[in-house]
Design a protein around this nucleic acid. Structure first.
Lengths: 118, 118
DNA sequence: CGGCATATGTCGGTCGCTGATATATATCGG
DNA sequence: CCGATATATATCAGCGACCGACATATGCCG
């Protein structure tokens, strides 16, 4: 199986499914909300990704329903998906922390190893 | 210009260049260190990415040198690269925080009686 | 002299994302 | 009643970043 790092759209998909099951269109709106409107999930990305994630066992089709005459497929996060998301966020958090640590250390003549001269 | 989110290898490249200029092979080692050995930058990714990032103005070739008979190209983070990295980590941090918040929310389904250990 | 670390590079293939297009129903304003 | 907008799912060509393998060359060590 592929252990390649998740790309952001996929990460957001799993995140949006973490609190409760949602259907495709609802995911677009939820992701829009999560990212404060900065990420707009396209349907081309969405439905392809949903199929792929089901295939990988990270999510599953919870149920299909009809609301106001419109068909919906409701997806739920699988245990494997939760595990992957947890591992992924853990690793990303470390990467982000390291990047921010280095960005913050702008040419600061901080602590140098013993007796180092400038 | 493309404002697509950076993928992880690219993010790590910029991060590894934030504290000081490095050459290609040194970047592989630095990224290995940053990620605690979890990410091994491949040369196929590396040199392609370096060319691309120079093209995009996010990094630049600082100098070329020869050490122990081996040629090196030393790359440095450009201002634009620093800005992009800062913006990217900022956004990623929010995404990660949201994911972890949701993951944590379900981990506490009920209040456990004192001393009850899992 | 063979093997390993150092060092840079190419290239075909894969895979996820983009953008466009298609289809269908419900709701609301004019 | 009709057109626009929102809801809702789906397909597909194309692109771009990454992967994996391969290629090339030098220095060092046993």
């Amino acid at each position: 199986m592929n252990e390649r790092p998740l790309q952001e759209p996929t990460l957001l998909l799993l995140t949006a499914l973490t609190d409760e099951p949602r259907h495709g269109y609802g995911l677009i709106q939820e992701i829009d909300a999560i990212s404060q409107g900065r990420v707009r999930m396209r349907t081309g990305t969405l439905y392809g990704a949903l199929d792929r994630l089901v295939q990988q066992g990270l999510i599953r089709v919870e149920r299909e329903e009809v609301v106001d005459g419109r068909a919906r497929k409701v997806y739920a996060l699988a245990e494997a998906g939760r595990d992957v998301l947890a591992a992924e966020t853990e690793r990303l958090r470390a990467v982000v922390a390291e990047a921010e640590r280095r960005l913050a250390a702008r040419r600061a003549p901080a602590i140098r190893p013993k007796g180092a001269l400038a």
